[in-house]
Design a protein around this nucleic acid. Structure first.
Length: 277
DNA sequence: ACGAGAACCTGTTTGC
DNA sequence: TGCAAACAGGTTCTCG
């Protein structure tokens, strides 16, 4: 479900409630998320204070004061629900993990498909561990630029659509925002990644930054599972120009084309072959 | 070494 | 109407 804008929105929603709090009670109803929740997860987190929250790509990190950091990924269907008062908690199917704070709040990790991940990394060396060690730059950070993207795409023969989904090229993009960014940059998803000129990589960089910023400002995109931690909906889905828009006219004024659908690497691609070259 | 495809799951939508 | 197939925001493993 969640790409960078959704994860960022979730993190912003839970950050003020969790920062500085102690994990009073940690409950794990299911350990069989992707990769498995460590068997000692409760022992290593309960009683610790949360120093700081951060996001890297699609991962949320909760840095604790005991040398561990909680690493959370929402997979395809993961959701976080935050109750300011745990007494208000209403059980829902697939509620796998609770984090209860000393201030009485409860964070719930809910994930029907269980593609999500929850594990621990070293507070100081998490960046040196997979997947972070090989992860590309933050698209909204200083390390990401047109030239940097151009370099990352050099030698890649796979379609640019597929390359952008590779978190080693740039962090945080998923199927929606890749389609949307390529449309905004007027670049065909079918083109070999290495065929982009420096100028086109620059345009793509701009498009990625803009679409992500706009999506964060809108609170992400709510399609099926995704909601904000407070239960509210994101509304960027109303701004999709190509994603899920098969058969509708290209939103570009003078284009006159129609949005088409194809499959690349097993994932749906949406684009306009008239104005994406 | 790289890229395509499958696998991992459940829920919802689509099509016969 | 009913059932089966297809599909869904992601990552990771295997195979060619």
């Amino acid at each position: 479900m969640p790409e960078l804008p959704e994860v960022e929105t979730v993190m912003r929603g839970i950050e003020p409630v969790l920062t500085g709090r102690m994990l009073d009670a940690v409950t794990v109803h299911r350990y069989d998320l992707r990769g498995g929740v460590p068997t000692d997860f409760i022992a290593r987190t309960q009683g610790a204070h949360i120093r700081r929250l951060a996001r890297r790509g699609k991962y949320i990190l909760m840095h604790l004061d005991n040398a561990h950091s909680i690493v959370m990924h929402l997979g395809m269907s993961g959701r976080v629900r935050l109750y300011d008062d745990a007494h208000d908690y209403i059980s829902e199917p697939h509620d796998h993990v609770f984090l209860d704070t000393d201030a009485g709040a409860r964070l719930v990790l809910q994930d029907p498909r269980r593609f999500g991940m929850l594990y621990l990394a070293g507070h100081d060396d998490w960046q040196a561990q997979a997947p972070f060690s090989a992860m590309g730059p933050e698209p909204l950070g200083n390390g990401f630029s047109g030239p940097a993207l151009h370099r990352a795409l050099a030698g890649r023969k796979s379609p640019i659509k597929t390359a952008l989904l590779d978190q080693r090229v740039v962090a945080g993009l998923g199927n929606i925002y890749v389609c949307e960014a390529l449309y905004r940059a007027h670049i065909s998803p079918l083109r070999p990644a290495c065929s982009l000129s420096e100028a086109q990589a620059g345009a793509l960089h701009e498009a990625i930054v803009h679409v992500l910023r706009d999506a964060i400002a809108a609170g992400g995109s709510s399609l099926r599972d995704y909601k904000k931690a407070d239960g509210g909906l994101g509304y960027f889905q109303h701004h999709f120009r190509v994603y899920g828009q098969t058969g509708t006219p290209c939103p570009s004024e003078s284009c006159g084309g129609t949005i088409e659908h194809c499959v690349q690497g097993g994932r749906s691609t949406f684009y306009c072959r008239q104005c994406q070259l």
